[in-house]
Each structure stands twice: as C-alpha cells, then as structure tokens.
Design a protein around this nucleic acid. Structure first.
Length: 400
RNA sequence: GGACGGGUUCCCGAGUGGUUAAAGGGGGCAGACUGUAAAUCUGCUGGCGAACGCCUACGGAGGUUCGAAUCCUUCCCCGUCCA
C-alpha cells in the first residue's frame, strides 16, 4: 500500500490535479510492477534561460524522480517553430532549427541544477511531428472539434477582439497533445496556464486508445514586476543561472506583497516556517529583512550558502550604506583624456550619448561619490582609480 | 471575389496638410523619500551635436505641395460583413 505521505508531498503546492484517484492508482501499480511512471514536461525552446517560475514545475518533477520515476522532457523544437500562442495576444516569433539547438545546449546544463540527470529522457518532438504527412495530420485533427479548441480563453478573446488567430496556432495544442500519445505519458506536469493544453493531451490519448495521463498544474509565479507571470518575454524574470548578486538583487526588487508567494513556490520552506514569516510580516517587522531571507534562501539553492551570505553583505553595502561594490568592471582612460559623455557610453553604462547627457542632467552621475552635472567635463588619466557611478547600480572603476 | 474599417514611436493608443520627435496610458530609466533594486511622489524616455541645429521615424514604393503621419496613386498585410 502506498504511503499517504508520498501523495501528500506530491500534492503540495499543486493547483489542479486530474485526478487524484488515478494518480494513486498509477503510483501503486508502478510500485507493484517496478515499472517507473513516465512523467512528461514540455519545454519551451524559445530562450536559453530557465527562470524561477519554470523552476516551480521542475522542482515538482524532481519529486517524482526521487520516487524513482522517469522525467520525460519534451523539447518543443517543432512546436517552437510554430510559436506557442499561450497567454499571448499576439503571434509569437517563429524559431529556426539553429536557434532551438543552441538554446537547448544551455538548457540542459541548467535543468540539471534541479533534475537528476540519470532519470531524465530528452525528446525533441520534431522526431515524430516532422514525419506526419497530410493524412496523419487530418487524422489527428479529426479527433478534436473546433468548438473544443476555441473554448480556450485566449483564443476566444482574440476572436472576439478581432485579433488575428492563425490556423497553425489552432493546431499547436493538438500537436502538444499528440506528444503525450507518442511518449506514452503517465503524468504530465505544467504551469497553471497549461491546464487546458494538458487536458487536450489527456483526451487525445484516450482517443488513441491509451490510458489518459494524469495532469498536475502548479501555480504561476508572478514576475519581479509584481504584475505579470514570470516570463522571458516580459523581462521580469530571475534566471536560475544568474550570478548570485544579480539573483539576490532581483529578489529584493519584488513587491513586498509577493514575499510569501515566493517562499511557497521557490524555496523548500515548510508550511510552519512560512507561517512564521507571515506572522513576522503582520507584526510590523520590516519586510526588507524577510525579503532578504527569501533572497538568501533562493540563492542558496542555486549557488551556495556562502554565495548567498556574500550577496547579502554586498547588497547591504551597496544599497543600504551606499558604498561601492567589492567587484566592478574597469575602464582605462586614454592618455588623451575622454569626455564624461563618451566615457559613460564606451564603458557600457548607458546605450547612447543623448541618454548620457540626460542622466547627467538628472543628477544620476557620480565620480567618487560626488555628483557631476557638466556634460563638457573631460577626464584625464589619474594616479588613483576613480569610481564612476550611474544611477543606483551601475559602477565602473576608472584607471589611468 | 465584393463592400467597409484598419496598419503610428519599446507596447497600447490619439492625431486627418505646418504650432508634431508626434497627446494619453503602459513599460523602462532617473531623482526625492525610504526600513528595500518594495511602496509613494516627481522628472525623463529616437540619434548626433557645446549650441542655433541636423538626421531618422508614422506598413512599402512613388507622387502632389514651399511644407505630409495627415492629400493622391500603387503594392503588401490585418479585421468585420457578404459571397
């Protein structure tokens, strides 16, 4: 008999589970027969970075691996080329084979920060989708109705608002569902926004005579902007491979209201620990401190406790005490001297000279802590290095 | 195939001959403040130039005009309805 604690652990942090009874049945069968479950997870190949939002579902997948099951990662190289319409009001750019391969190279390394490599199976869905001919596609399309397809909220919305919706986008969920058929998934995981897609897979499997997959979705993590879901395309994400300092800083920039959600979704903190954080927040303790603990916990997972400690110290040093960072890039001033405006651009602190002039005017530029306003200022090489600061977080050490 | 509507700066969206680098919002950045790269308030937000200024930009290409995002021609694309 299956240990109740196992189910509870798998269910923890899960938003929707269809269905619990089926999951228990499969787990028990796996235990009895010794055949591990095949747990599918689709990967978006549009960018090379894995962020904390996606890590939520990867961590869930890891739990299955720890129970001896197999992670089946579907790299959507075929569907990536089509463009995934999920949650977008517009058509996504399409990717080339080249881009997909490059992205995947880096992806693999990052995935193993969370998953156990020996229990992973990577599959490119072009493996089977590229081989479908017109007959196959019609045959697949004949197993699902248009009414069911356009039930999906974002399709519905685009139709209602007169925003273009292309036929190939309608096909996408079908192909994604077909992936489940091809890999014979027992369980499929996904973010909350994937729920509808996962259901399509479940139904298609049934229509292809397979036992329908169990589906589990985890909540979407809100991005650092506090508004939209964390996503590469919104630029509001924290990548799991980012340097510790960067990761720490981004986590400190999330709105205070998100602190508890982040603890729940991105760390291993227990319910009891999270309740304690909640109590402290309510008692009026400075949210900053609790957020710093969050940032530390997350950096510890992807780097190390030492790196987290260092990032925390550095953060206080730069943003609280307004001192200069321990490490910063260097820029050598040419012997002939250089204007402050050119310097800012050449050192890569700002993208254009116009922008540099504006920032000078706004009082955002400091040399060794002294505000500089004069755009005509020319710097000569000096014996002592000088620290140039633009805004709160851009520093460069100037050498002679 | 036809009728009508539409394509504007990073995004959304106003603008129907000069006062328009183009309202407003979003996003981003900066400043102030702060217990944080939270929140709040304020400012800035195409490029080059010290500066008068110059260049680039309103789907593409031509044209009218002293002058066009705004008018004309043509092409491309999107939507709605009809067939």
């Amino acid at each position: 008999m299956l240990d109740r604690a196992v189910i509870e652990r798998l269910k923890r942090g899960v938003e929707r589970l269809e269905t619990e009874a089926e999951l228990i049945e499969r787990l028990e069968r796996a235990e009895a027969t010794g055949r591990p479950l095949r747990v599918k997870l689709g990967i978006d190949a549009s960018g090379p970075d894995i962020h904390l939002g996606f890590a939520v579902v990867l961590r869930k997948l890891r739990q299955f691996q720890e129970l001896g099951h197999t992670a089946v990662l579907i790299i959507g190289d075929f569907t990536g080329k089509i463009g995934d319409p999920t949650g977008r009001s517009k058509t996504r750019p399409q990717l080339t084979d080249e881009q997909v391969r490059e992205n995947m190279q880096r992806y693999r390394e990052q995935v193993f920060k969370i998953l156990m490599p020996e229990r992973c199976e990577f599959r490119y869905n072009s493996e089977w989708l590229d081989r479908l001919n017109a007959t196959d596609i019609v045959n697949l399309a004949a197993r699902y109705t248009v009414a069911r397809l356009i039930e999906r909220e974002d399709f519905r919305k685009r139709l209602d608002e007169g925003v273009p919706l292309f036929v190939h986008e309608l096909l996408y969920p079908l192909f994604q569902g077909y992936d489940s058929v091809m890999v014979q998934a027992d369980v499929e995981l996904g973010g909350a926004d994937q729920y509808w897609n996962l259901l399509v897979g479940r139904e298609l499997q049934a229509r292809f005579g397979q036992e329908p997959q169990v589906i589990m979705t985890v909540p979407l993590l809100v991005g650092t902007d506090g508004k939209m879901k964390m996503s590469k395309s919104y630029g509001n994400y924290v990548g799991i491979s980012e340097p510790a300092g960067e990761m720490f800083g981004k986590l400190m920039s999330i709105p205070d209201e998100l602190i508890l959600d982040y603890f729940r979704l991105t760390t291993d903190k227990t319910d009891a620990e999270i309740n304690e954080y909640e109590r402290r927040l309510r008692s009026g303790e400075n949210p900053r401190n609790i957020k710093a603990e969050l940032a530390r916990a997350v950096v510890t997972i992807y780097h190390s406790p030492a790196a987290a400690e260092q990032a925390a110290v550095e953060f206080d040093r730069v943003f609280r005490e307004k001192q200069t960072p321990a490490q910063m890039p260097e820029f050598r001033i040419p012997d002939s001297g250089i204007s402050i405006v050119d310097l800012i651009v050449q050192a890569g602190l700002l993208p254009s000279k116009s922008e540099a002039r504006r920032k000078l005017q706004e009082g955002a530029v400091y040399l060794d802590g002294v505000r500089v306003n004069d755009p005509a200022l020319v710097l000569k090489p000096a014996a002592e290095p000088v620290v140039l600061k633009v805004g709160k977080r851009r520093f460069v050490r100037l050498t002679g």
